[in-house]
């Protein structure tokens, strides 16, 4: 390749380009919005056609948590192993607001979301930790929060019996609230991926120092992602309380909630918008099949799936597909 510089077009000559990129962006968006629409129609019909509410609720919950976790794990590279802290807090704030303060549940859930943002701000100093330190501290903070709630007076948090708000809330409403939160999360994800913030985050994930040198404000971008991520987990916690009507410190802070969010997101592909949804569909469906056939093997298989994913497809279904067929990048967000 002799003197390549002569063949290079000038900047002015290139200004008319970009139409192919725009076209690909339109295709990607169309596929994505079609997927959201399909999910909405499908899930909205479940109560009407007497489908299995619990499974579809589990799917919507999982997809929202995986998408929320993806904001911080997929877009910035942090692995918040105590992600459940925000979820648990959302449940408790919602429960307390409904039961003790008499606030309608549809206002209580957003209150829980805001509480999640406040907690995320309080935990923000941990963002300067890296890798495994961040994961361990995040997990520890979740445990500390769980024990702190257990320490609170029984009149407020219900003590070891937990809280029961089932008489005050409607299960079907809770189901649809979950759908609303899921759609919010999915739209936020696609907006974020195409926004400048989203690009900064991906650059940070790839190489924080290089991003910094290219003018990206690393600390601020990470903080935004962290807050958005926490907000959705807390909303989900609140809606979960709305749907099931009962929770205690063990179910609200179960480490499996975090684990499933991570696994669903990883199975589909961290860092892609569509990945967490795909991962959740596949794994909730597989889980359901397996659970029906071999109930006692449930957690063994969850563990096996995790191990196999990490060893053989660490980039998940979408990530692996894109790596093998790079053209698919044009079709998936």
């Amino acid at each position: 390749m002799a003197d390549l510089s002569q063949t290079a077009p000038t900047a002015t000559g290139a200004l008319g380009r970009g139409s192919d990129i725009k076209r690909q962006r339109r295709i990607r968006r169309a596929i994505w919005y079609a997927l959201i629409l399909a999910i909405v129609i499908w899930c909205a019909m479940v109560p009407v056609r007497d489908g299995n509410l619990s499974i579809y609720f589990a799917f919507m919950l999982g997809a929202t948590m995986a998408t929320g976790l993806n904001f911080v794990a997929g877009f910035t590279g942090y692995m918040p192993f105590g992600y459940v802290a925000f979820y648990g807090l959302g449940s408790y704030v919602t429960g307390i607001a409904v039961k003790l303060l008499g606030i309608p549940v549809y206002l209580a859930v957003p209150m829980g979301g805001c509480a999640g943002i406040l907690l995320a701000l309080a935990f923000a100093p941990t963002l300067r930790l890296s890798g495994i330190y961040f994961a361990i501290v995040s997990l520890s903070l979740a445990i500390i929060l769980q024990r702190s709630i257990a320490l609170m007076p029984e009149e407020i948090t219900g003590g070891s019996l937990g809280m029961n708000i089932g008489v005050l809330t409607d299960r079907i409403q809770g189901y649809y609230a979950m759908l609303v939160v899921l759609v919010m999360a999915l739209l936020t994800a696609s907006w974020l991926a195409e926004s400048r913030l989203g690009r900064s985050l991906k650059a940070i994930r790839e190489d924080a120092e290089a991003a910094d040198a290219m003018g990206v404000n690393v600390v601020r971008s990470r903080l935004y992602a962290w807050l958005v991520s926490a907000f959705f987990a807390s909303l989900v916690g609140g809606v979960q309380a709305w749907f099931t009507g009962a929770f205690d410190t063990f179910t609200a802070f179960d480490v499996l909630v975090t684990a499933k969010a991570i696994i669903y997101a990883m199975a589909g592909g961290l860092g892609t918008v569509i990945g967490p949804v795909v991962g959740t569909v596949v794994l909730v469906w597989a889980d359901e099949l397996v659970w029906r056939a071999f109930p006692e093997l449930n957690s063994f298989l969850l563990g096996l799936v995790i191990a196999l994913l990490i060893l053989f497809a660490p980039r998940g279904i979408i990530g692996t597909l894109i790596r093998r067929y790079p053209r698919l990048r044009n079709y998936f967000m």
């Binding site: 192993f81 495994i132 994961a135 990883m266 957690s299 063994f300 990490i310």
Partner: peptide
Amino acid sequence: YSDDAETSSFLLMFGVSLMLVSS
């Protein structure tokens, strides 16, 4: 071969722990 070997090992061994408890 993974992008972040430490975090991957953490998740891998979490999966192993689920399998061991279940076994």
